[in-house]
């Protein structure tokens, strides 16, 4: 009997995970698209050295971070996949969303402080899992870089 309850619980969790997970992903992507358009004016580059532009009077470190969790359904899907091997497509969107969200938050900070571009952008990804095997539960993405521009802020802390 216990096994039946466990199975039912498992199926309910899968269904909840699928329902809420898909909904959350869709709405998150909507918001990402919208904000990416809004913040398109802030330019980001991975180059180490900015051009010697006289407009770049101020510089300041900016960053954005997010911790995001994968839903039960996708985690189980990844598990099944790990059994057979191949591309774990269910985690691709998780990482994509996290990186874009963190980048947007960094751009937001740059905009608030009055900068127009961010150079030497670096990504830092860490898994904040429960340490259960190789299972990824949730991940943190932190993006940082140096914002350059005329800057309305003081440019120093």
């Amino acid at each position: 009997m216990e096994a039946v309850y466990e199975l039912i619980l498992f199926l309910v969790l899968l269904a909840l995970g699928y329902g809420f997970g898909q909904w959350a992903e869709r709405s998150h992507y909507q918001s990402i698209f919208k904000r990416e358009k809004e913040l398109a004016g802030i330019l980001v580059f991975a180059e180490r050295l900015p051009p010697p532009d006289p407009a770049f009077k101020e510089s300041r470190l900016v960053g954005g971070s997010v911790v995001i969790s994968v839903d039960y359904f996708k985690r189980f899907l990844a598990l099944l996949r790990s059994f057979i091997g191949g591309r774990v497509s269910s985690y691709e969107s998780l990482l994509d969303r996290a990186r874009r969200e963190a980048l947007l938050r960094m751009k937001m900070e740059a905009q608030e402080k009055g900068f127009q571009s961010v150079f030497n952008v670096k990504f830092e990804t860490a898994s904040i899992s429960k340490g259960k095997g190789k299972n990824i539960g949730s991940i943190e993405v932190f993006v940082y870089g140096t914002a350059l521009g005329s800057g309305s802020g003081s440019g120093s802390q």
Binding site: Q22, F73, F76, L77, L80, S93
Partner: peptide
Amino acid sequence: NVSRGSPIKDFIKLS
């Protein structure tokens, strides 16, 4: 960077 395709189809096929 993100594959297309429905996760539910993937799930059914795999399980």
